[in-house]
Deep mutational scan, measured.
Amino acid sequence: MTEYKLVVVGAGGVGKSALTIQLIQNHFVDEYDPTIEDSYRKQVVIDGETCLLDILDTAGQEEYSAMRDQYMRTGEGFLCVFAINNTKSFEDIHHYREQIKRVKDSEDVPMVLVGNKCDLPSRTVDTKQAQDLARSYGIPFIETSAKTRQGVDDAFYTLVREIRKHKEKMSKDGKKKKKKSKTKCVIM
């Protein structure tokens, strides 16, 4: 069974824990209790493949930012979460993405942009803004509501699919490099 290491990042209060708990335990946590770091595991079937999701729910508070490099190193894919009623959390996505790329030393890291709290009427981040940002990053965008469960499975499952595509691409690139290195030079 394939294991996928997913990391949920975003500013404090955007609903990272609520999304994760909704996926794992099928219930909505409405009281806000700032996370330092929590880890969850769940076995699911995605596109006919049974897999184990190892999900790291991270601290959004700035005082825990020193811990970010460590979990970013171990993560295979990242859910970059903002709240649709919090423009600052949307603007912060850029910083999370840049930090992930720096730590992973790669421009090509599996990510999904997630606009959470889409059940709320007080939207300050337009869907088109988020779609445009995701398009500019070359990553999928999904709106979710941890409260109603809308888009929750889709967000995590899409990230797994992005990781699969990335692994497939990397193995193809690896095979191309191996083929090239088999060419021999004969000096007579």
Rank of each mutant, 00 (worst) to 15 (best):
S65Y: 05
A134M: 03
Q22V: 01
S145G: 06
G10R: 00
G60K: 10
C118A: 07
S106T: 09
V112C: 01
V8C: 04
D54R: 12
D57N: 06
T74C: 11
S39C: 07
K177A: 11
R123D: 14
E143D: 14
D57W: 09
I163A: 06
Q22I: 00
Y157V: 15
L19I: 07
F28P: 06
V29I: 12
K5I: 01
T127N: 11
E107Q: 10
K165Y: 02
K42P: 08
R73D: 12
K167N: 11
C118I: 08
T124F: 10
E37P: 00
S136F: 07
D154H: 12
R161M: 14
H166F: 13
V103W: 14
Q61N: 08
L113Y: 03
T35R: 06
K165Q: 08
E91T: 01
H166N: 12
Q131M: 09
V44L: 06
K101E: 04
S136D: 04
F82S: 12
M111A: 01
L133V: 08
T183I: 02
E143K: 12
F28H: 10
V152Y: 08
S106L: 12
E107I: 14
G15E: 00
K180V: 04
G15Y: 00
N26C: 03
K104S: 09
F141R: 02
G151E: 08
G77S: 01
K165W: 01
V7T: 14
R102W: 01
T2Q: 11
K117A: 13
I187H: 15
P110F: 02
T144I: 08
Q43V: 06
E98L: 02
K177P: 14
Q131Y: 14
M67C: 09
D47G: 07
I100D: 00
K167D: 09
R97I: 15
L52R: 12
K16P: 00
Q150I: 14
V103H: 07
I93C: 02
I163M: 07
L79C: 01
V14K: 02
L133Y: 09
V125F: 11
F78N: 00
K165R: 05
Y64E: 15
D173L: 04
L159Q: 00
V14R: 01
K16S: 05
I163G: 01
G174K: 14
E76M: 14
G13Y: 07
K175W: 03
S106M: 09
T50L: 03
L6F: 08
G15H: 00
M72N: 04
D153P: 08
M67E: 13
D108L: 03
Q150W: 10
I24D: 14
G174W: 00
G13E: 09
D47W: 01
M170Q: 09
G15W: 00
F90S: 04
V45K: 13
S89M: 07
K165D: 06
V186H: 12
V112W: 00
T124K: 10
D92K: 13
